[in-house]
Design a protein around this nucleic acid. Structure first.
Lengths: 184, 184
DNA sequence: CAAAGCATGTAAGCAGTTACATGATTGT
DNA sequence: ACAATCATGTAACTGCTTACATGCTTTG
């Protein structure tokens, strides 16, 4: 349910519609949710039922009506409680590593192909991340502290990808060395 | 459904019972599943229905009967297909970063407390990982290649934790500097 | 004229978790 | 006496994903 916290956090920055939140989640590498309708709209409806958010309906001429959500005092209280809850350890799900772990049945060439594909998608993800970051993504900067935090969080997300790419490249080279030392 | 792949992988190493697999998943830092009954036993039952595994029931005197699972040819085929499927990008779920992102409402002391708690649990997780790795966890080493892969995978998991701890420590110091430059 | 964007919502399903249920044996 | 280990399985639930449903507008 930590997506609730993330949604409350966004709304503590400024009011949003569900549609805007959806895009925000979908575009962010640090927010590990797909931003699908069910989660966003569902959470907003639940939050409203609990009195944590207010809705302002803005009727438009050419587009469907927007529902702009604002935090209430109760919402602000839940956010603060979540912010102060004890931090949880980071989770890393590196499925490729599990694939590698059981790759004994693959030929050196097949293994090398997997690495090539993995490195390519990592390199691609890094390029995309860098492009977005260079363009400057919308971020709150209500204080020097907040700006620093956001900068460091973005850096960490990129650094994680780059570390993984470096790891894969190093290991791939080692494997090439091995298969040349003991040819089939 | 990637846990299926992981289970098939284990069984390609040697036969296991559900109970043994459960412990294996629960103890491993690289296998991102809790090893709960429902998943392990459920998957094994499904795999058996599909003819991917054989069961040998071993009745024991003092303990409940064990069901030892072995891969069939069909199981080996599914494993190979999974091993050759295109690698997926690593997923990182660093919930603490999201907490930080919206921490604007917290005092410097409250923020510092969060960092202290985070660093402590990271340091703890690292110690546990190192202890287990020093004792040498059970791992297949049917070839030089397999031994190398398992070593590097273990290292990567530890390196991820250590990088996160270093990141947190660095940022915490920067924040301390900030709050002294602009005291409340 | 097709695709993408604006904007909301629901249905069906998969993946994963905690907790429940049973029951003997061994260690503290 | 209490907890942990051995060993299997089921029930109830949360979280999250894909896909469905609608309908107008703008862009290519």
């Amino acid at each position: 349910m930590s997506i609730r916290g993330a949604i409350l956090g966004c709304l503590s920055w400024k009011p949003f519609t569900g549609y805007e939140l959806k895009k925000l989640f979908a575009d962010s590498a640090s927010l590990p949710w797909s931003g699908n309708n069910n989660q966003i709209y569902g959470s907003l409806i639940a939050l409203h039922k609990e009195g944590k958010v207010d809705i302002e309906v803005q009727v438009q001429e050419k587009y469907p009506a927007r529902k702009v959500y604002t935090l209430t005092e109760a919402g602000r209280a839940e956010l603060k409680a979540w912010l102060l809850s004890t931090p949880s350890l980071p989770e890393q799900r590196k499925l490729f590593h599990i694939q590698l772990a059981w790759a004994e049945g693959l030929s050196p060439a097949e293994l090398d192909g997997l690495f090539a594909s993995y490195e390519e998608s990592l390199a691609n993800a890094i390029l995309i991340e860098k492009a977005i970051s260079r363009k400057g993504r919308p971020a709150p900067a209500r204080s020097e502290r907040e700006a620093l935090l956001w900068r460091r969080i973005e850096e960490a997300s990129l650094a994680g990808l780059e570390a993984e790419l470096a790891w894969a490249r190093g290991l791939r080279q080692e494997l090439l060395g091995l298969s040349q030392a003991h040819p089939a």
